Simulated assay, not measured.
Amino acid sequence: MARITGKGTKPEVAVRRVAHGLGYRFRLHRRDLPGSPDLVFPSRRLALFVHGCFWHRHAGCRLAYNPKSNVEFWQAKFKGNVARDARVLEELEGMGWRVAMIWECETRDFDSLCVKLKEILEQDDK
C-alpha cells in the first residue's frame, strides 16, 4: 500500500486534461479546504474529487471488489474511508462549496467524461 499515491493518479490527470481542454482553470489539492479536493474551481465554488472505485467503494462497480484475505482489516479500512468522505462532503457544503465526484471508472471513456464534466461545471451557469 505504500506505493499507492493520492495525487497525480491516472484518473485525476485525465480529468485535469479534460477540464483544461474545455477552457476551465482550477487549483490542485487546496489544503485549506476539508479533504484537500483534487480540483478546485474557486470562481464557481466547486470542489471536485476524483475517487478510486476500490478505495471509496463505488456502489455497483466491478472495481470495488472485496479482498479475500485479511477481511476484517479491509472492511474497517473501507468503512473509515466512506465515513471520512461523508464528513468532508458535509463540511464543504457547510462552508458554501458545491461538491462533485468523478469515479475512476467514469474516466475510462473520454467522450462521456467530457459530457459529465461539462454538466458539473455548467451547473451553476443556469
Results as ranks from 00 to 15, higher is better:
residue 122 E to W: 10
residue 64 A to G: 04
residue 6 G to E: 09
residue 84 R to K: 15
residue 110 F to L: 14
residue 24 Y to M: 01
residue 68 K to D: 02
residue 123 Q to F: 13
residue 40 V to F: 02
residue 117 L to V: 05
residue 118 K to W: 00
residue 71 V to C: 00
residue 121 L to V: 09
residue 93 E to H: 11
residue 68 K to Y: 00
residue 6 G to H: 03
residue 77 K to A: 02
residue 91 E to G: 02
residue 50 V to Y: 01
residue 101 M to D: 12
residue 24 Y to D: 04
residue 118 K to I: 06
residue 19 A to H: 03
residue 78 F to S: 07
residue 122 E to K: 13
residue 89 L to M: 12
residue 75 Q to W: 00
residue 85 D to F: 06
residue 31 R to I: 10
residue 47 A to R: 04
residue 85 D to I: 01
residue 20 H to L: 10
residue 72 E to V: 00
residue 107 T to I: 08
residue 84 R to S: 13
residue 102 I to R: 04
residue 92 L to R: 01
residue 14 A to D: 07
residue 34 P to N: 05
residue 22 L to H: 06
residue 63 L to E: 12
residue 69 S to G: 08
residue 8 G to R: 10
residue 124 D to N: 11
residue 74 W to P: 01
residue 59 A to C: 05
residue 111 D to K: 15
residue 21 G to Y: 10
residue 21 G to I: 07
residue 48 L to I: 10
residue 16 R to A: 12
residue 69 S to Q: 13
residue 77 K to F: 09
residue 108 R to N: 00
residue 88 V to D: 08
residue 93 E to G: 09
residue 89 L to P: 00
residue 91 E to F: 06
residue 92 L to E: 01
residue 18 V to K: 04
residue 50 V to D: 06
residue 118 K to A: 11
residue 98 R to G: 00
residue 115 V to L: 14
residue 75 Q to N: 10
residue 111 D to W: 10
